[in-house]
């Protein structure tokens, strides 16, 4: 057997091993219920509750942004994102969060928003003249 073959076999073995290990890192989407049972960080994919409070008061804490999210099971929880409120937030349809439950609140360190395509649902804009605001 050639050296290269031995090395190739070793590498294939290693590859299988590493890929199995890598597969352990795979995230799964949890519900709030599951997140309560799991210690450590999870991902949650849900819908923004647009009728509930969206709170960001940088005067008090610029790293505290809270809103309510409904998970796929229909459960609604308060989410606290430890960052500034991103632009376009209200427009997002579905949200993917990374974080963990603390008490009855979900503390998120990462957030990915899925906004509807900028053009899809937008109405055709009609030319208009006045843009200044009236106070």
């Amino acid at each position: 057997m050639k050296k290269i073959h031995i090395i190739a076999i070793l590498m294939i073995g290693l590859a299988i091993g590493l890929l199995t290990m890598a597969a352990d890192d795979m995230g799964t989407y949890a519900t709030f219920q599951e997140a309560m049972e799991i210690k450590g960080k999870v991902k949650i994919n849900g819908q923004l509750s647009k009728d509930k409070d969206i709170e960001y008061e940088p005067e008090i804490d610029p790293n505290y942004f809270s809103f309510y999210l409904k998970d796929p099971a229909g459960e609604e929880k308060k989410v606290i994102l430890l960052a500034a409120k991103p632009q376009d937030f209200e427009r997002s349809e579905s949200i993917v969060l990374t974080g963990q439950m603390k008490g009855d609140e979900f503390i998120a360190s990462e957030m990915l928003m899925k906004c509807p395509s900028k053009y899809k649902d937008e109405e055709i804009q009609i030319k208009s003249v006045s843009t200044a605001q009236v106070n």
């Binding site: 005067e59 790293n63 960052a83 500034a84 603390k102 360190s109």
Partner: peptide
Amino acid sequence: FAQKGLIEGFSDEDYQKNVL
């Protein structure tokens, strides 16, 4: 002056990225 280490599993960096 912000309080640190409030939340388990989060580094200080996680929640202290912005200042007013």
